[in-house]
Design a protein around this nucleic acid. Structure first.
Lengths: 145, 145
DNA sequence: CTCATTACTTATCATTTGATAACAAAATAA
DNA sequence: TTATTTTGTTATCAAATGATAAGTAATGAG
């Protein structure tokens, strides 16, 4: 099999994934949130509690800039910070009640849009999709990342 | 089958795809190019010739901003513009010779990194991967476009 | 021909994001 | 104890990106 052809197929596929992600997530938050701040909230939502250092690494941004964005999110009452009792340098970040509410609404909206994408899929189609996702996770994506 | 579970699997999958894309494409261009300009060049590379309006729509940016970035790319001799002979309002954008060279090097670098991702895949694995990509394209991504 | 529309440009301003220096507090190593 | 490292903050500055007003030239509709 031609690995180069597979590469081109993969590139086209990822381009489409990015496009679909854009469509699924556009105009999600009514709140006064920048795209970067939304990504940070998304990460906190699925990984909380997280430290600023972890956010910094996962979002590929410097710690000072992470600190600034977290301060803005805290000013908007969307997150809360706690100090580690053992190591008081460390901070743990969680969504506040309002933050949770906002992100749950966002995820619900995205899910609704996703369900429209697969509205015509049969049970067999769904099994095929699930299997395809698992194959790619296992045989391409889980190698390094 | 539980569609909601499939949604969560899909979300995790796209997050990983974005991470892998980031890893594959980081530090690609030595040239003095911003991320947005790189995306524009990538789009021109695979779709040329394209009009500023098409770039504008595909990259979700306004025509004035598109025009500004294209001017910068032209100043760096990475693209060329041609007028449509039939409709002289229209412009067609192409990569210049230097632009082609740059993008081919970039793609070669990305391909090399991709091949490392699948270096341990057997022939059967490659067939599975190709099939999985095709399934997802067909049953999820091609619905709305 | 006149008017509206389309495709694009230029100019300008605001916002977002990135980069870096300097600092403080806590923990750890020597 | 002293020195070093880790974790995070504040403050600036620069660059990238977004938004919008105004204008030009070509086209097409009436």
């Amino acid at each position: 099999m031609n690995k180069s052809a597979l590469f081109h197929q993969f590139v086209a596929f990822t381009a489409t994934i990015h496009q679909v992600t854009h469509d699924l997530t556009q105009n999600i938050t009514a709140a006064n949130i920048t795209p970067l701040q939304y990504k940070i909230l998304e990460y906190i939502k699925v990984s909380q509690p997280v430290t600023p250092t972890e956010i910094s690494e996962c979002q590929h941004m410097s710690l000072p800039n992470t600190s600034r964005e977290l301060r803005k999110l805290q000013e908007q009452q969307l997150i809360q910070k706690f100090s580690d009792t053992a190591d008081r340098r460390k901070q743990y970040v969680r969504l506040s009640k309002e933050g949770e509410k906002m992100m749950e609404e966002a995820f619900a909206c995205i899910e609704e849009r996703f369900l429209q994408l697969i509205q015509h899929a049969t049970q067999d189609d769904l099994k095929d999709i699930q299997h395809a996702l698992a194959i790619l996770e296992e045989k391409v994506l889980r190698q390094n990342g």
